[in-house]
Amino acid sequence: MSVVNQPTPKPLRQSPTRRLATAVEPYLYGAPVVILVATVMLVPLVIGMTYAFRDITLLNPFSGGFVGLANFRKLAHDADFWLALKNTVFWTAASVFFQFVLGLILALLLNRPFAGRGIAQALVFLPWAVPTFLSGLDWAWLFNPVVGPIPHWLVALGLMSQPENILSDPNLAMWGPIVANVWWGIPFFAITMLAALQSIPRDIYEAASIDGAGAFERFRAITVPFLAPTIAIAILLRTVWIANFADLIVVMTNGGPADRTQIVASYIFTTAFRRLDFGYASAIAMVLLGLLMIYSLLIVILRQTLLARF
């Protein structure tokens, strides 16, 4: 077979410069990302930390001087901040709890094959695609007795004496953003759990049922231990994320009524955006960052000890 003549190869000798080029190649590919992220996130982060020790108010030409720990001292006595911190814990705990429980149930439902599963999956995950500001507005409207059905349903169920907007009730207002957040966030947990569920080998379940394990026993002895690491990671990340997630609150209640829905993240935003007090906003942000880091560390330690035990 000699249809093709030998092509004349143009040898590319691997000179030292070429070797160097090979060595720097991956850095070249990674450099744009690193430069972008460093300049837009890391540099501002460091600068923001210096703001915390300065008096920086936009539109005030005399501000900018270093004030030491004044911002933090003010923070310690700021009742709004402590209320926001309390609200943050409630907001985060309730949101994560319901997102997780309902997401896990959804994942278990979807892990079972049935006709139309693909369509069902696309539909139940749809809220995740809804822009957050829009889901906030949408739920605000649903809670509004003028155009929304929810107050009327609550009256019909006897849970409310007359149709009112729970977003304007200081005692209930926080549930508005929480419901919106749960609705919007269930798919995240469901998808994560579903992926983990699908990575459990089928034959382990088959072996267990042959060994005589019932449905509940299989769930307890196989599903839960297999899911545990994913659950731990997902809850950790989600908690940090939700604690920082101010969009829904800014859109639905703007912290009101009477600051009863103000969380730390939305408080930072309000301080920076409305009062233009960047120094104080940065001080709050640093405290929030510190708290979240402590929380993450605790979770990681807890996870390590649990893993070591089992």
Binding site: Q6, P11, L12, R13, Q14
Partner: peptide
Amino acid sequence: NDLAPRDRN
């Protein structure tokens, strides 16, 4: 040794 794979034919 130092030829790229494509130059080795």
